[in-house]
Nucleic acid binder design. Sequence first.
RNA 1: CGGGGUGUAGCGCAGUUUGGUUUAGCGCGCUUGCUUCGGGAGCAAGAGGUCGGCGGUUCAAAUCCGCCCACCCCGACCA
Length: 570
Amino acid sequence: MRWTQSFIRTLRDAPREAEAISHKLMLRAGLARRLSAGLYTYLPLGLRVIRKVEDIVRQEMNKKGAQELLMPILQPKEIWEQSGRWDDKELGMLKLKNREEREFVLGPTHEEIITDLVSREVRSYKELPLNLYQIQTKFRDEMRPRFGMIRAREFIMKDAYSFHVDESSARKGYQDMSEAYSNIFRRCGLKTQVVEADPGAMGGSKSEEFIALADTGEDIIVFCAQCSYAANLESAQRGAEALGKSTEKMKSVKELKTPNIKTIEQLKDFLREKPEKMIKTLIYLADEKIIAALISGHRELSEVKLRKNLKCENLEMADEKLIEEVTGGPLGFSGPVGLKKVKIIADVGVTKIVNGITGANKRDKHIRNVNMGRDYNPDEVADISIVREGDRCPKCSGKLAVRRGIEVGHIFNLGRRYSQRLGAKFLNEKGQERLAIMGCYGIGITRTVAAIIEQNHDENAILWPMSVSPYQVHIILLNVNSRETVKVADNLYNQLTGEGVEALLDDRDERAGVKFKDADLIGVPLRLTISPKRVSEKKVEIKCHRDGKEFLVAIEQAREKVKELIHENG
RNA sequence: CGGGGUGUAGCGCAGUUUGGUUUAGCGCGCUUGCUUCGGGAGCAAGAGGUCGGCGGUUCAAAUCCGCCCACCCCGACCA
């Protein structure tokens, strides 16, 4: 592509709206433009990157025997009622009606459609396993789109669905996708961490997320520096802490006046005591049952873990009224001592607290020197708190690290949930009717592009991996008024292009500085600089953007060198 | 949906506190000409604005008041 004939638009300054680095660079390099919150136009340069990622995805999916198809975006209400998800609030469904008041949804995901299709087409175990996928725009009416293309209302997704005769086939299918995903992200130049996840709205038994580590990520994950343990912050576990027996002797309980001191933070300042000494008492309503959760003052409760422990459907914090009813004291002054008719569940960390401080269940009062076993007895001790940086790994007792990341892929074993509701049945070898076991596997294509930038950039430049770069080589023609130089640039451009190399020729009548800055920004990994000075020496310069390596080569050797470097960086 | 912030030319901003030399400026970008030409050039001449919208106060509103809208950040929520 010749720059003068292209629709490449770069910006010197990032629009104010952009905060995340990938967002800024995408706008500045002219990959995309915003239409409205979470809605973007992909410009030619951005679309080239998207297509590259899609190609990699296709290759790796096809390698595992998956087949591409394309399903409708507009989906009728009825099929979603069949699956029981029409009123699902987690999916952010964008619903609409046509002229006849018939209701539709713009597809946020396609389990319903694919399962319906397969249920109509597949009759025999001989046709299974089957893995079908598509790459398509998805719609989610996000409450808060953010970070540019990391959380958008409309985005491109690769979604695959597999159908199996039994568990072992389903496991194999899941494993295949896990491998494909690792290959895809590696080829895209992304470092990802696989973490166990909560299946959430998708349902099913097992799911794992592929998280690209990045500071502007929305997900927080925990992983062990020593072994392979990794999990979502909310569900990460921690190993037993060294329960070094405190030498502190138990003292007798004392009531403290703490006027209007309701939070740990306030209490810390007021009493000048460490939060580790404090026992936070949180009252929850779990499926109509009232429970009290005890957490050490410096930790946070994990509702995910608590819910899992209680095996309850609904878990919500009690309101002020209920707290008064249950504890006898107002919000902010709850404590385990003297609590009755309430199940008390204590975090493992709380067992360590000697002479703790906690609410007195009376207005403006806390109590000091509270000890488990003597002053109160929890009904259960469990790991219900959120992991902190430096906690012990539950597997190998190494140190756990807490990092932000972007969820770029998610794989699920769905079991029979959808085949049950949408009737995806087949006949087995014995002629018996059976429900297919399903899996579904998603990759956020546009989000992956953003994640690649998050992991491959510096302050003023994208550093594309060759595999996804919009062009393979960026030819900078310095001085368009030098006939000889233009001729050399044209020839090289034509030859390279003719040989299938994706080249961008900056043939604008701009000064060198402008061209170099734009080349940095756009971030094509190879740069070929053609200047009158070098041409008079019958040479051209080749530079690798990422590592800064430079080569001065004879004009007639440039083609081969470029191809060699593309290959090396491929 | 709760909390905070921002809306002035394509992009970045000043002006708003204290209404009136502001016919609303500046930098970049854009157009034309000349010079320049290896890291965001110089000079000259131009084009480009419902000051987010509606309503109000006032002799007078970018500026004060009210309502609304949009966008961003934190939270809640989230393949």
